[in-house]
């Protein structure tokens, strides 16, 4: 299976998830509620099927190019949304995450990869999969926390109670931040094996570190309970911009043209 087969699977996923979203607010124990679960699962299964068979036909882990990481992001963030929905009954969060997942998956439709089996020697390491997976899981949680941040700002300006949303943002930032830390440190340990030094201020490293600092700022700001939640919400929302520069923007920055992390052709 190649990216040429992708539109079929994307269509399946989109249709089923949109159907599930239509049924989003149906009450529990109704037929529609069951139907919604089925739609969610079928949509999810379609994109998982594509991902796995892409992996098999590439004969290498699909973690190299931007389109491949976007694919995983779609898979992870929708999974998180579905789990949170059934665990804590968060329909709005489900809607958000499915929307984000579809957005990223749709970007891949507009901009698919060419089918490329090659993996340069530097990437052939046992570190490759854990390094990228913890980053993408981290991105998914942190992206999610920033969505909560934006939603919190909306509630704040509407003068609604945001205490619950703040607690949720805090906990999700902690999880995402832990994964981001793993990503950075795994990267450092791998870099020592591959390039001889654990930290070289490669532009991607610099921006990953900046992302880490931005969320670190949020965590510390939240330690003082009486501080303005508005500032905290702005920090967590803007931190996502840094994250996106680290992930995509790096390819366009003049300061990053020599990065060893720009692998897509």
């Amino acid at each position: 299976m190649t990216w040429l087969d992708y539109p079929t699977y994307l269509l399946l996923t989109s249709v089923f998830w949109l159907l599930a979203l239509v049924l989003l607010l149906t009450p529990k124990k109704s037929v529609f509620h069951t139907l919604k679960a089925v739609f969610l699962f079928v949509g999810w299964a379609a994109i998982i099927t594509f991902t796995i068979s892409l992996w098999i036909s590439l004969e290498r882990p699909p973690f190299r190019t931007l389109a491949e990481t976007r694919l995983w992001y779609g898979v992870f963030i929708s999974s998180i949304g579905i789990v949170l929905y059934y665990r804590w009954n968060q329909p709005l969060m489900l809607a958000y995450t499915l929307f984000m997942a579809l957005l990223f998956l749709f970007l891949n439709y507009l901009n698919p990869d060419t089918f490329d089996k090659t993996l340069m020697p530097a990437l052939q390491s046992p570190w490759f999969i854990p390094h990228v997976v913890v980053y993408i899981v981290g991105y998914a949680f942190l992206g999610f926390s920033s969505l909560i941040g934006v939603y919190g700002l909306y509630l704040y300006y509407k003068e609604k109670n945001i205490e619950r949303i703040m607690l949720m943002a805090d906990n999700i930032v902690y999880i995402g931040f832990a994964f981001l830390t793993f990503g950075l440190l795994f990267g450092a340990l791998w870099a020592k094996e591959a390039w001889g030094h654990y930290w070289t201020w490669d532009p991607k490293e610099t921006w990953a570190f900046l992302t880490w600092l931005a969320y670190l700022l949020y965590i510390h700001f939240r330690l003082k309970k009486k501080q303005s939640p508005k500032t905290a919400l702005w920090i967590v929302s803007l931190a996502f911009v840094v994250l996106l520069i680290c992930w995509f923007g790096i390819n366009y920055l003049p300061s990053a043209q020599s990065s060893v992390h720009v692998y897509s052709s």
Binding site: W201, T206, W207, L210, L217, P254, S255
Partner: peptide
Amino acid sequence: TVMVLLLGFIPQ
């Protein structure tokens, strides 16, 4: 962070 941002934006 400000110093690292400068590092991130200005070609070294």
